[in-house]
Design a protein around this nucleic acid. Structure first.
Lengths: 147, 147
DNA sequence: TAGATAGTTGACGTTAACGTCAACGTCAAG
DNA sequence: CTTGACGTTGACGTTAACGTCAACTATCTA
């Protein structure tokens, strides 16, 4: 049962797997987002580092800054057991959730407009007489759709 | 019927309404994202500029770069009627849609984990004997949840 | 033993997206 | 007329998130 959890990675392997450069991993470490083991001079990444990295990159894709991602990761690292700390963690956690939900609204709105526009373009034909682009059904020209 | 469409804005008004600085609006103009009318020296923003600005800012919140947003806005500005141009527009449009859908997946995943973690924290109680934080139902400690 | 290979730490460069500041124009109000 | 309020154009500064490069170290291989 020496499972997946026991796998170790060099900086090259991990960076290759996630398609980032070694420089990036060292930078994340500088910023306190990762803290791999050290075997002498070299870094050795464990499964937990791998999971954290995946988390970081996903956060980045969603638009968070590294500082924000760091905070979010810190939320997970509270196991000591101070009541106030628990409350703060929960509060920040809910704030982040709010932000993400707002962002999801923005994303959906943007997506809808783009899809609507794509559908519009698809349904356009060229008028056989004037050579202008018109709506296939209504016959109206494209004019000034959208923003 | 001199509707909403006829309203004009100074740079101050528009920037205040959207909570950005005038500098930002000038910068967006530099980058070709906006092109307000000029009355002599001053800029005059119309309803269309307002709509574009809203679009830009939403795109920004969703994580696009200004360059990308510029491309997306350009998609809307094609009314001349060259077939290849229409095809290209549609293609890029669909690419953007793909990217947005991928991002929505990331966002949902992040959101789910955060919500799950928040729920976990909420359900923790302190053990009356050891003083440790444990799961209210299972009695297990927090240990190393998450990344 | 020499070279190739993989890694390390600084130090400095780069890009995007503005902020900040200086110097100037303009137009209505006192 | 001059004093603000509002606006303008450069020019330079700043921050985040790395890229790039130099100078080293350690280890493995031929």
């Amino acid at each position: 049962m020496t499972s997946d959890r026991n796998k170790r990675y060099t900086i090259k392997e991990l960076s290759a797997e996630f398609d980032v450069t070694p420089r990036t991993l060292r930078y994340y470490e500088d910023q306190g987002l990762l803290s791999p083991e050290r075997r002498g001079q070299h870094r050795i990444y464990h499964a937990t580092d791998r999971v954290r990295l995946a988390w970081i990159l996903r956060g980045r894709r969603v638009g968070f800054s590294l500082a924000e991602i760091g905070e979010m990761l810190d939320l997970y690292d509270v196991g000591d057991g101070r009541e106030t700390q628990r409350a703060v963690t929960l509060k920040r956690c809910n704030e982040r959730i709010k932000a993400l939900e707002a962002q999801r609204e923005d994303l959906n709105a943007t997506l809808n407009e783009l899809q609507g526009f794509a559908a519009l373009i698809s349904s356009m034909t060229r008028d056989t007489e004037t050579g202008q682009w018109i709506h296939a059904d209504t016959g109206e020209p494209l004019a000034s759709y959208g923003p």
